[in-house]
Design a protein around this nucleic acid. Structure first.
Lengths: 237, 237
DNA sequence: GTACAATTCAAACGAGCGTTTGAATCGGTT
DNA sequence: AACCGATTCAAACGCTCGTTTGAATTGTAC
């Protein structure tokens, strides 16, 4: 849907345009995070970035492609760092990785990103969490492509560390882990639902992951529900 | 933002209009779930419901009020059932409730709703999960009001069942629980990220909650991360 | 300093949005 | 059969949206 006007440039520069592109990406990251994709207009976005309205279509092709560029800028390095940490862990332990350590290789890159204020860390993670729940097909396809390799590797790693889980059971639990992680990081606003979160706590993403880690590790290690107990959940009435 | 034209009706009937209102609510539930609030237009919505475009503003006042009506219709009974189950459990056990049983009083009403096909159960739960992640202020305020009482009660109940957790730690863990639950139910589409989910599994919400329960119980029961281990997470490099 | 590509800009396009209006229609009551 | 409030309807209002256009401007190599 973009290639009718595929960005006029030969090979050169990009340094002249870098300022504009970066300003657009920064403003988009902030506004998409705050209002969501649909509710953010290119007019408010370009005004916030102090660039001309047409600059988005010139530099990125379309609003959708801008959104993907916003995600790619942070997500690619983060997921690559995850894979590198996981591979290093696998080498260092000779394949006998603990569940905790594997999970930490997922959390550490997210934590580092959250701490990198200069690169809009916290805002970006919240945007990412919201993108996960967005029904727009182009977002779902994009994320699915971005995560395919990473999720596959982690599934193999966890399978070795949690031999009591079937492949299917583990698939679900990884889903739960990603859910708690996305939702937790994305929804700092949602914490107001629960109140009583101290102001100091509120934006300390490190403390947040420190609290999340034991919760997730225990959940991953839990024995699956036995068949014999299945009906209990429903007969509770 | 609505009351400029506050729905013309005296006291009577509502039976004549029930059909139209219900058709609108059903179509809205389905379309909001599929495309999100912003991306669903009143024109497509009223067309799907086979009613006139102006019917939404006549019966509900505005698009936002329609959205709240869609949520209220299912959410109020579900949360009320949760509170009733919790109170009954508290009476039956004389205040000595297990963590599992408390959690089940949260899951059972959700499961019942998911099973009630005639009332669009699964679709609604997915819509609810998405509403949690929506940045629109009116949605956040609405949900926060809807959930205030329920969350408060569950916090007290879990505090008794999990005496090793501080109030603050528990607040976070309830947040994780709601996150995994919302995200899991909302994002059946997101499962495509992880592939390898059998077709039979895919839409069996009972099985889903059966898998989710042991994960969450183990997470809730886990000991909090000791201070001595805190730095480990970050030094992993 | 001229040429040329890259970028910026103001302006407009066409389409779709939520909402409002006032007339037409319906159903029950007198 | 005449009335009246409740509901439905077609049409329009004013507005914002993403995108496109073509001219102006900028920066750089010759």
């Amino acid at each position: 849907m973009a290639s009718t006007r595929p960005a006029r440039k030969t090979v050169a520069a990009d340094v002249t345009s870098a300022d504009t592109k970066t300003r657009i990406l920064d403003a988009a990251e902030s506004l998409f995070m705050e209002h969501g994709f649909e509710a953010t207009s290119l007019r408010s976005l370009t005004a916030a970035a102090s660039v001309n309205l047409a600059a988005v279509n010139y530099h990125f092709g379309s609003k959708e492609e801008l959104f993907q560029a916003v995600l790619t800028r942070r997500l690619d390095p983060m997921n690559q760092e995850r894979i590198e940490l996981l591979e290093r862990l696998e080498r260092d332990t000779g394949g006998k990785m603990s569940c905790e350590k594997i999970l930490f290789t997922m959390l550490i890159p997210a934590l580092r990103l959250a701490r990198d204020e200069k690169r809009g860390g916290k805002n970006f993670l919240r945007l990412l969490g919201r993108a996960y729940a967005d029904p727009a097909p182009f977002i779902r396809h994009f994320l699915s492509a971005q995560y395919a390799e990473m999720i596959g590797r982690y599934k193999e790693a966890f399978l070795k560390a949690l031999p009591h889980l079937s492949r299917q059971e583990l698939t679900w639990r990884l889903h739960f882990v990603m859910g708690a992680l996305s939702y937790t990081i994305a929804g700092t606003d949602a914490l107001k639902l629960f109140a009583q979160v101290s102001a100091a706590d509120k934006y300390d993403d490190e403390l947040l992951l420190q609290r999340l880690a034991p919760f997730l590790v225990a959940g991953l290690k839990a024995p699956p529900l036995a068949e014999s107990r299945r009906l209990e959940l429903v007969s509770g009435n």
